[in-house]
Amino acid sequence: MAKGRKRPTETKGKKITLKMAKNAMQLTMDGKRRLNLSNMGIATFPKCILKLCDVDELDLSRNLLRKIPDSISRFVNLRWLDLHSNQLEQLPETIGRLQNLCSLNLSNNHLTTSSLPREVGLLAKLQSLNLGLNRLESLPSSLAALKDLQDLGLFNNQLTRVPDWLRKLPKLQKLNTNGNPLPSERPEMLEPIKRVESLYLVKESCLCRACIQHYREKKERLDHHVSAAEQKKTRTRFTGLIAPNSVAQENQALWRLTRYN
């Protein structure tokens, strides 16, 4: 490097200690151990959590992670891994060693076709895979081996076609391909598959510029329709209702309990 030239600055992020990680341990409704490090400003995978690699669930969502190390393979008991809303540009091939994994959420990252390893197809027990809000132009054919896959999120990518092998996945029930440059006509091969919407609440700072613009345009249209509707009739008010966020965590834990057991 030339003299006087500065190295590019990198986001340092928050440093996680083993004590902090232990304090973030939670117990699920079915008695499983969950390590929740979501939304903590982590920019580098904390090595200290390798000492807690016997957990059943790992949540590293809503952080600043750019990559996951090969050592992720040491979490052999994982059944649930949430990495959504980071800045992931690649995944290690060793992720294919997580043979107990039932749910993998990779949505809202920077993954491309070349950075999605074919070893994901080795996750034989995988039931839910979310790849939405990435930069995928195609899918690795190795995913055709996911015979237990039931939910697949591919929304808001750069897919121009849906691969034929999706039709052959025996348990696939829910597929979301919205927001891709696919042909306008609906392919006949997708008729048996239910198209669904997925909702993830993230901070605006976690979204790219195009997503923010898309959100603002939709919000303006929605506000216009709501305003017009309110002028026509009086809005009914309900009292004594529980706020949705007050039971969201419990419902999510119950869903995983009934889903994977």
Rank of each mutant, 00 (worst) to 15 (best):
S103I: 13
L106G: 07
T112C: 10
V55A: 02
P92Y: 10
E119I: 03
P92K: 12
K51C: 03
L111I: 15
N108R: 10
I72M: 09
C102I: 11
T112W: 02
Q99M: 06
N100I: 08
E119Q: 15
N100S: 10
D54V: 01
R118Y: 01
N108D: 13
P117I: 13
K67I: 04
I68S: 03
C53W: 02
L64A: 11
L65A: 06
L106S: 07
S115D: 09
L111E: 05
L98E: 05
C53P: 00
L111D: 05
Q90Y: 01
L91K: 04
N77P: 00
L83M: 08
S71F: 02
K67P: 00
S107K: 07
N86R: 07
V120F: 04
S85W: 00
C53F: 01
H84F: 11
P69R: 09
N86F: 02
T94M: 09
L91S: 08
S61H: 05
K67Q: 14
T113P: 00
N77L: 11
L106R: 05
R79L: 01
G96E: 13
V120N: 05
R74H: 10
W80R: 00
C53M: 06
E57K: 00
L116V: 13
C53R: 14
R97P: 02
R66V: 06
T112Y: 04
